[in-house]
């Protein structure tokens, strides 16, 4: 499956995932997976829970390594040995940022300021530059007032924004977002979506996992549908969203019982539709 923009066809893809298999003991999370992510593309990985999306993000971030197959990053194999090298490892983590699904995992520092400072400090940025960058990113994410707060005092929406800020402060070329809008209230959700929409045209490559069909067309140029650790379909969001049979088969379509005014009770699927 390929997400390379036709206009950048000759450019080396950011990621090439070739025949990757990954297992958690007896459970196969990724099963002979192929995927190419082109530079500057916004890619959505769509799939039900347990379909392997988060595992793939961890592999793309160099936190896990495939049992079989290989991943190329900007044309070079992404291996454990390579990432152990300080020069390559630090450069890679500066260029690729991962925002975890559970912000409590990511917010391990005692205050929001320390959290956002963690990455730049690891990359040995000068302290003046760190202060400047933190100040800018906190303003941009509208969380400057939370600077001295402890993460356990924040709401889920605030935690997600801090988690995003802690990665964005490094200004990565590639952003990997694991379910960025999961478990958010509508206001916090729209804040994250606004960021993803605004990031279009800034040249960043963004890979987002989600099972929220409603936001797909806003946050992605290309969509890949996951099922059982494999990609079963790929294409522009509009094409995927119009394939109701595929969405039903991959458990992505929301449907539940309805009681109509006439008293009739039946089930039908829901799909967010954009009006032109």
């Amino acid at each position: 499956m390929n997400s390379t923009n036709p206009s950048n066809a000759k450019q080396t893809p950011v990621y090439e995932v070739c025949d990757v298999t990954y297992r958690y003991r007896q459970v196969t999370a990724l099963d002979h997976l192929y995927l190419t992510v082109g530079a500057g593309r916004r890619v959505a990985l769509l799939g039900a829970n347990g379909s392997g999306k988060s595992t793939l993000l961890r592999i793309l971030n160099g936190l896990s390594f495939p049992d079989k197959g290989m991943v190329n990053f900007c044309g070079e194999p992404l291996t454990e040995e390579k990432l152990q090298d300080d020069g390559f490892g630090l450069d890679f983590h500066c260029r690729v940022g991962l925002v975890f699904q559970n912000p409590d995992v990511q917010l391990f520092s005692a205050t929001v300021f320390d959290e956002v400072a963690f990455g730049p400090l690891q990359l040995r940025w000068p302290h003046a530059k760190i202060r400047q960058s933190i100040s800018e990113i906190l303003e941009m994410m509208e969380i400057a007032h939370l600077k001295e707060r402890s993460p356990h005092h924040l709401s889920m929406g605030e935690k997600k924004r801090v988690a995003l800020a802690s990665v964005l402060v490094l200004d990565p070329e590639i952003l990997l977002l694991d379910e960025p809008t999961a478990a958010l209230d509508p206001k916090s959700e729209s804040h994250i979506i606004d960021f993803l929409v605004q990031s279009k045209g800034r040249g960043k490559t963004i890979v987002t996992t989600t099972h929220d069909l409603g936001i797909l067309e806003d946050i992605a140029d290309d969509t890949f549908v996951f099922q059982g650790g494999r990609i079963v379909a790929g294409g522009p969001p509009s094409e995927i969203l119009s394939n109701v049979a595929l969405l039903k088969e991959t458990s992505l379509l929301h449907s539940h019982l309805h009681i109509h005014k006439s008293g009739e009770v039946h089930t039908h699927p829901h799909l967010h539709q954009h009006k032109e």
Binding site: R58, N61, G62, L63, D86, G89, L90, H93, C94, G97, L98, F100, V105, Q106, F108, F118, G119, Q122, L123, S166, V167, L170
Partner: peptide
């Protein structure tokens, strides 16, 4: 630990 590594912890 993975989250720390992903932001350059070495």
């Amino acid at each position: 630990y993975l989250a720390m590594q992903s932001r350059g912890f070495r």
